[in-house]
């Protein structure tokens, strides 16, 4: 009985060590972001009050922003404000950045979730077929994933609108936001129109929201989908060569059943480790794709913030993206370690 407890305490120790490492990375990331913020050649106070303000007003804003404090104190304030979700006020219109991001979050979240779904389903289907059938199909899958990884998402968005949107075949709505204008948004439960539409029993809202989602979600899904396809194809090829698959086959399991039950399942787990990368590509993609489709999400706020030289919006978003990336990676590592007993043995 003493063995398991010592191994759990070792696991706890390892977990605590990993957590400390993650915290150190996050702290350093906040330093990086603070340094970039401080690297602004212009005076942030001057950017806020405009070129015509009197020196008194300028000095007032400087004091209010804490720009006269020593740098280390400014950094501590910066850290405190970020951690307590006080991400400052927009330089251009004074709006509370946290409130703006919170209001826009559901739209981006809905888009990202559907894109994620498209990417995962597409990748699993293509990669499984490619590694099961092999031959020409595998070649095609490889080329498609290589091309997919090289696509500029904002350009794909443009082409999709041109071909399938209102100015092309007219199959799907063009860049017109989340719903057709005569439809009322469904009652707010989750903020995701497709989910809320179903919950409220409004199939028209659901299908309309899905139609509006389709093109931006496909553009967004392309890069993570291509990436996952490559990863899953390689993983399945590795697992398919493992001796245990031969054993399973020799017991009379059909090739397809062995592939689906054993090869695919074992190939899926390691791809969890790339959760952070997929999340990062969804965040980046939303910045590039949302403005093409007039999608009222965070990415569009960021692009508008960039065009108005609004540092408060951009800085909050950039640091937030790093925190999300690190969090996703840590969570994925933890899940893999919990689920996969081989890792527990091999790291000891």
């Amino acid at each position: 009985m003493s063995r398991p407890t010592s191994s759990t305490s070792a696991a706890l120790k390892r977990g605590a060590g990993a957590l400390l490492g993650v915290l150190a990375t996050l702290l350093l990331a906040s330093v990086v972001s603070f340094v970039v913020l401080r690297a602004v050649p212009g005076d942030p106070a001057r950017l806020i009050v405009g070129p015509l303000a009197t020196p008194d007003v300028l000095a007032g804003v400087r004091t209010q922003l804490g720009l006269d404090d020593p740098l280390w104190l400014q950094y501590l304030h910066y850290l405190r404000d970020f951690a307590t979700l006080q991400w400052g006020y927009s330089y251009s219109n004074g709006a509370d950045v946290t409130a703006v991001i919170a209001a826009r979050l559901p739209a981006t979240l809905e888009l990202a979730l559907w894109a994620f779904l498209f990417a995962v389903v597409g990748a699993v289907v293509v990669a499984t077929l490619a590694s099961y059938r092999g031959g020409a199909l595998a070649g095609v899958a490889k080329v498609v994933s290589l091309v997919g990884l090289g696509t500029p998402q904002f350009w794909v968005a443009l082409v999709l609108v041109l071909v399938l949107g209102s100015s092309g075949l007219g199959v799907l709505p063009g860049p017109s936001g989340r719903l057709t204008s005569f439809l009322e948004p469904p009652p707010h439960v989750t903020g995701l129109y497709t989910v809320d539409g179903l919950l409220a029993g409004q199939p028209i809202v659901f299908s309309d929201a899905l139609a509006h989602l389709a093109l931006p979600a496909i553009s967004l899904a392309l890069i993570p989908g291509a990436f996952l396809t490559r990863l899953l194809t390689a993983n399945q090829a590795d697992v398919a060569r493992a001796p245990f698959v031969t054993v399973v086959r020799s017991k009379g399991v059909s090739r397809w059943a062995a592939h689906r039950r054993h090869v695919l399942h074992n190939a899926l787990l390691p791809s969890l480790a790339s959760a952070g990368l997929v999340l990062a590509s969804l965040i980046t993609g939303s910045v590039l794709v949302e403005s093409v489709f007039n999608w009222p999400g965070i990415g569009q706020v960021l692009v508008q913030g960039v065009q108005r030289q609004d540092f408060a919006v951009v800085q909050a978003f950039v640091l937030l993206s790093a925190v999300l990336y690190v969090a996703a990676n840590t969570a994925a590592d933890a899940v893999v370690a919990l689920v996969d007993p081989r890792l527990r043995v091999s790291t000891r």
Partner: peptide, 24 residues
């Protein structure tokens, strides 16, 4: 390595965006 990891925690486009904005 810690410092490199911290820089790599930012999605490339967004970090490049922040640096570019900071320098004009």
């Amino acid at each position: 390595v810690r410092l490199l990891d911290a820089v790599m925690a930012f999605p490339a486009l967004l970090l490049a965006l922040a640096v570019t904005m900071a320098f004009g």
